[in-house]
Structures are given as structure tokens and as C-alpha cells.
Amino acid sequence: MEFTHENNHYELLDVSPDASPQEIRAAYVRAKATFQKDSLAIYSLMDPSEAQEMVAKIERAYQILSHPDRKRAYDRDFLSNPNADMDSRAASPFAFGATRDKVISIDRVPPMESSLDDELLVPPTTDYTAGAARPEPHRMEALSAAESPFDITPRQPRPTASEAPESRLAPPAAEPSAIDLEQVEEWTGEQIRRIREARDFPMERLVEITRIRRSYLNALEMDDFAKLPAPVFVRGFLQQVARELKIPADRLVPSYLERLEKWTQSRKSR
């Protein structure tokens, strides 16, 4: 994140832009614990001044993101100059969606500001991201909730096309022809959904592959703009979805974003 987005506070704290205040706080505590002076995880990698600098950045990010007004102002500024960021984002190694392991344990809470203490007592391995995939407390081995290595399946030879067993069983649905895609003038969520279904691409798989939250993907397909994050992120989502569903991104993305923009304008003017 430092590479391109010096000032992206969300990436600095490793939270998604729609994270709850509690998530932001937990991420802040974890980030700070990671870069504190005695942290094992920075040993030999960063010298004290570098680590200090990082902690300062984390503090700055938290000061803004923890304060509703400042956060709103920051979000607005961030959006007002999206071009600075958008193109690099698509190729960014720090792309969003990789905030799966929001695990924080009370063990990790460093002895620091007492002002925070009352809210720091987060139970161990609380995963805010995915209620369904949340590991049971006694199965602490489950490290990354979304794609846990720890679900044991019976030993069997590798199925060659395990990715898409349903597509082999069901007769292949009619591929949306190139002409179909060409004819689309205005791209809506409905179009995306139709193509996804025609491609026999279950939502679960899209969630798994893109690592975009289901709620966002649903909102995308339903044109539920109010539930979508800032356009800069929507752009990234659309590019990923386009890639997976083999929709030409150069057609889908601008068209969709234009509709989103219109909607935002109309809401502002009201």
C-alpha cells in the first residue's frame, strides 16, 4: 500500500472501507501491536525508526477513520480524486478483498494506552468477516476463515474438474454470444447476473474467486447503489467480475460507473 497509496488509510489498517467502527478499532490495535518496538514480527526487518514511522502512520490513519466526521471528509476527498488511484488499483498487489483474517486475540493486546482498554477485550479469533465460515473456538487451527486449509475431506483422488462439477452434469447453458455482449448499450446489474447465470457461474464461486463480499456482489447485480462502497472500489469489483465472467471490462466498467455516478448526482441534488 505504501508503494502507490501512501495515504490510503484503509489499506494501512488492512480494513475494507465499509468496516464497522469496531472492526477499525480491532485492526488498529492489531496493526499497532504488530509494529510496536518489541514485536517479534518485525524483528530484523525494520529498524526502530522505520517501525516508529509505521506506527505514526497507523495512528494518523486511526485518528481519521475512528472519527465519524473526519472519516466522512476523508472518504469524500478520496473519492474526489479517484483517478490518482484507480488504474493502479486494478493491478495493485494490495488490492482489496484480502482482509479475511480479521482475527484478534486478547493475548495480542499490547500493554498500551489505558484509554482503550475497555474496548480492547475482543475474544480470541473473532472473525468479523464471515459468520458462516467462522471457526469454532476449539478448532483454533482454522486460520483463514474464508478458505480454511482445515476442512478435512475424505481422501480421494483429485477430481479433474472439481471446480465445476455442476457444469458437467447439467447440459451446458447457452453461452451468451459475442453478439449479445456487443449489443448491450447500458450495463446494469441485471445484465451481469444474466451473463453469470448463462455461464453457469454460481455466486458462491464468484465470491470465493474474487474475494469480494457477497453483499457487494449482490448489490452490484441488484443495482442497489446505496449498498455499494466508493466508486473507486466498485471499479475494482467490476473489473474482477468482468474478468471472471469474460465480459469486456472496457464496456462494462465505464457504463456501470456512469449509472452509479448519475445516481449519486441525483441523490445529491435532492
Binding site: 504488530t34 514480527a41 483474517d101 486475540s105 493475548d107
Partner: peptide, 17 residues
């Protein structure tokens, strides 16, 4: 448990560094 969490911290540091 603290040992286990070291892995997450290393992951976080590697991402940022």
C-alpha cells in the same frame, strides 16, 4: 495462542513492508 498469532503478524508485516 500468542505463538499462533505471530503468523498473522508476519503476514501483516510482509504485506506492508
Amino acid at each position: 495462542q500468542t505463538d499462533i498469532e505471530v503468523g498473522f503478524s508476519v503476514k501483516g508485516v510482509s504485506k506492508r513492508y
